[in-house]
Simulated scan of single mutants.
Amino acid sequence: MRVAVVGGGIIGLAIGRELLRRNADVTVYDPAPAGTGGAWHVAAGMLAPGGESAFEFPFLEPLLAASNELWPAFADELGDVGYDDAGTLSVALTADDLAEARREWAHQKLTTLTGSQARDLEPALSPRVRAGAFAPTERQVDPRKVVAALRRALNGRIVRRNISNLSEMEGRVIVAAGCGTATLTGLPIRLVKGQILRLRGEPGLLKHVVDGAADGRHVYLVPRADGEVVVGATQEERSDRAITAGGVHDLLRAALDLVPGLSEHEIAEWTVGHRPGTPDNAPIIGALNDRVIVAAGHHRNGVLLAPITARLVADLVLTGAADPLIDAFTPGRFGCA
């Protein structure tokens, strides 16, 4: 079967690779296959189904959990993608931060740690940290390495071409163009701006991903083996690409409040990107019509959901069978058949 995938971000590439593994004749169309403009390039790569599940969208949790279970094998197949399963330590600095965090920890069924217990796990934490909770099943990868590995797997099948109209495509088409999916399909996908920093210092300051709040400012700190620490991320309902003093200040202040030792790190990179959001902040996965399938709008969860999205979409294309996992995510929920 010949299949065209429109979009060469982490979702489109994962789908293309899965189809290729199942012997489909697949071509991925990407306007800039060596580019860095996608949400994946600025993503930290946290695989945190508990922390990313929103209370108001409980139907998203089974999908997140299912994809998280696929990641160990998925990462092993791709090779060196910075996979780390050390877990995530969530922390709270102030009494108000703790009151908010307790609600999330209870939702995840995590045991609350005292500040001292949290520092036993992560000695670099500030002595001001009041409490924490440890999520041992959460993981991380480096999305830039993941995309590079997926591109290698699809060598010779990625075509540099900007698709502006789906009517010019023949056969089965999968639209996985991130924020660009709105223009191609009319689906309500919006741009959600995120600013992110990368710091660099001696390796080993942090052992785990740290996800915390400091005086109401939320930040996550994702350590890499080479000494890089990803600090993210703002979430702004804006479409511009400006890196702002306020955004950088909020990220750095929260990061240094939680882990003072980061003050010695070099600012290696600051970047801005856009997450593809939907009205309910859940992805769109399913048939738009009898020829076009959509896999887009993954918002904050594109990296985490890449393996399960690839599997579910490949099943839909090759067998026509729609897994019940995607019943809540079809384009039809927005009035699109």
Rank of each mutant, 00 (worst) to 15 (best):
G132F: 11
T114N: 11
E61V: 04
G82D: 14
S116D: 14
R144D: 06
G87M: 11
A99G: 13
R160F: 09
G79H: 14
L60E: 05
L113I: 01
E77P: 07
W71A: 00
E104N: 04
A149D: 00
K145R: 01
A66D: 11
P127I: 03
L125C: 08
P123V: 09
D96I: 03
S90T: 06
R103K: 02
D85N: 15
T88C: 09
P136M: 11
T111A: 01
A133V: 03
A131D: 02
L89V: 05
G132C: 00
L110I: 10
G87A: 02
T137G: 00
D96G: 13
A92R: 00
N155F: 14
T114M: 12
P127G: 09
R119S: 05
N155P: 09
A131H: 12
A86M: 07
G79C: 13
A99N: 09
G79Y: 12
S90P: 03
W105A: 05
T111R: 11
A124P: 02
P72D: 12
V146N: 01
E138V: 00
W71H: 06
V141C: 04
R160N: 02
V147F: 11
I163R: 02
L70H: 07
T88N: 09
D120L: 15
L64M: 05
R102H: 10
Y83K: 01
F74A: 05
N165T: 10
R119H: 13
D84E: 09
R144G: 04
P136K: 06
E77S: 14
T94S: 13
D97M: 02
I158R: 09
G132D: 05
L64P: 08
Q108T: 08
P58L: 12
I163Q: 12
T114G: 13
D120T: 15
L98A: 03
L64D: 11
R144I: 10
Q117T: 03
E61K: 10
T114S: 15
R130L: 15
Q108R: 07
V147A: 05
L60H: 11
D85M: 14
L60Q: 12
